[in-house]
Amino acid sequence: MIFVLKLNNKKFKLLNYYVNFFTNLSPTNNFIIMLLTNNNNQYKLLIVMFCFITCCTKSILYSQILPQEKIKYKTISQIPTISNYNRIICDSNSFGFYLRNLELKISNNIVYLYNNTPKYNQNAQYAIIKIDVGNKDLQQCADAVMRLKGEYLFSLKKFKDIHFCFLSDGKPRYYTDYCNGNFSYNKFKDYMNYIFSFANTASLKKELKHINNVEDIEIGDVFIQTGNPYGHAIIIVDVAINKNKEKIFMLAQSYMPAQEIHILKNPNNNNLSPWYSADFEEILETPEWTFTKNDLYRFP
Results as ranks from 00 to 15, higher is better:
Y185L: 14
N116M: 12
F188T: 06
F50A: 08
G227H: 00
Y175S: 04
K293D: 14
L61N: 12
I33T: 07
K189N: 11
D169K: 04
C90A: 10
N270Y: 11
Y175D: 06
G96T: 01
E260P: 03
N242G: 04
Q42T: 09
T54A: 08
M250H: 10
I76N: 01
I71D: 10
I235M: 07
Y17F: 15
V237R: 07
A144T: 08
Y276L: 03
F198M: 12
I283T: 13
L167K: 15
I82N: 11
F95Q: 05
N180F: 13
D279T: 10
I60K: 01
D238Y: 12
E281D: 15
M1A: 14
D132I: 03
N212L: 14
S155D: 03
N101W: 10
Y194R: 09
C55V: 15
R298M: 02
P274G: 01
L264P: 07
K209N: 14
Y98H: 02
S26Y: 11
A202C: 09
T226I: 07
N93S: 01
N193V: 05
D137G: 01
N40W: 10
N266W: 04
F249S: 00
T23I: 08
E285H: 13
N8S: 10
D216K: 02
E282M: 10
T290Y: 13
I261C: 00
I71N: 13
F97H: 12
L14W: 11
N121R: 11
N266E: 06
N213T: 07
V214N: 11
